[in-house]
Design a protein around this nucleic acid. Structure first.
Lengths: 125, 125
DNA sequence: CCGCATCCTACGTGATACTG
DNA sequence: CAGTATCACGTAGGATGCGG
C-alpha cells in the first residue's frame, strides 16, 4: 500500500516533510529559534490562534523526534520550558534556503493560483 | 482564528510546507526531477502505491502553483505530459539542504522516536 | 489512455471542561 | 500553570465507476 519500491531517499523525506509540514510545527520552531528556553504559556501567546491541545501535540511530536528539549521544574505551580535541540537547530538551518525561496516566490505562486483558478472558471462558462 | 499577528514570513512558509508536505508532492516532484516530460501513466507506475485520484489531485496542485507544466496532445488516445517548470526546479534546489539533512538525520530521529515511545510505555508500567 | 465525479473512511484540528 | 479527556467537524485520502 505504501511506496516501498521507490528510491529509498524519497520516503523518509516525504515523511519528514509531512510532519514538519503540518499546520503548526514550523511556527513553533520559529518561535523556539530565538534560543532562549520558553515556557508553555509564552509559546501559546507567541503563536496566535493555536489551541492548547494542538500546541501540546506539536511539542510532543517535536520532542519525540529529538528536535526540542522539554525541561520540567516540579515546582508549584509547575514550570515547563522548551528549547530547540542541536538537531532542531540543524533542521532550522537546513530550511533556510527553503525559507528564502518561499519569500522570493510567494507572490508569483499566488499569481499563478489566481490565473489558474480564473482559467478554470472561464472554462466552465 | 489564524495566526495573523505572527511575523509575516511564517505563515506563507507554513502554508507552502503544508502543501508540499502532503503525502505525495515530494515523491511526484522527485520523479519529475529527471527533466524529461513524462506521461500520466508512467508517473503512476513510477510512484508506487498512489491512487489515480491522488496523483491527479497532486498534479493539479503543482500545476496551479506553477511548479509543473502540463501539456496535452489531443490525439487519440489522449497523451498528457508533465514536466517541472523553472520555478519547480528552483524549489527542488532550495530543498536540497533539507534532503541532505534528512538523509543524515533520519536514523537518529528514528532512534529518538523509539526511545521516546519506550520511555512512555515504561511510565505506564 | 487520461482523469474526473462520487462515495466513504480516517485523521487532523478545534472548543470545551476537567485534573495534578 | 501545564496538560489530558471528550466531543464534534472539516478536509485528506482511498476505492470505484464513468466520460472524453
Amino acid at each position: 500500500m505504501h511506496p516501498d519500491h521507490l528510491p529509498e531517499d524519497c520516503r523518509p523525506i516525504s515523511n519528514l516533510l509531512s510532519r514538519i509540514g503540518d499546520k503548526w510545527t514550523i511556527l513553533v520552531m520559529r518561535v523556539l529559534e530565538q534560543g532562549e528556553p520558553i515556557r508553555f504559556k509564552e509559546l501559546h501567546r507567541a503563536i496566535g490562534g493555536i489551541s492548547q491541545r494542538m500546541l501540546t501535540v506539536t511539542l510532543r511530536h517535536l520532542e519525540r523526534d529529538g528536535l526540542v528539549i522539554r525541561t520540567v521544574y516540579p515546582t508549584i505551580p509547575p514550570r515547563v520550558e522548551y528549547e530547540l535541540s542541536e538537531r532542531g537547530l540543524g533542521l532550522q538551518q537546513a530550511m533556510v534556503p527553503l525559507f528564502e525561496w518561499t519569500k522570493d516566490n510567494a507572490r508569483d505562486i499566488y499569481q499563478s493560483q489566481i490565473a489558474f483558478d480564473l482559467a478554470k472558471d472561464k472554462a466552465v462558462t
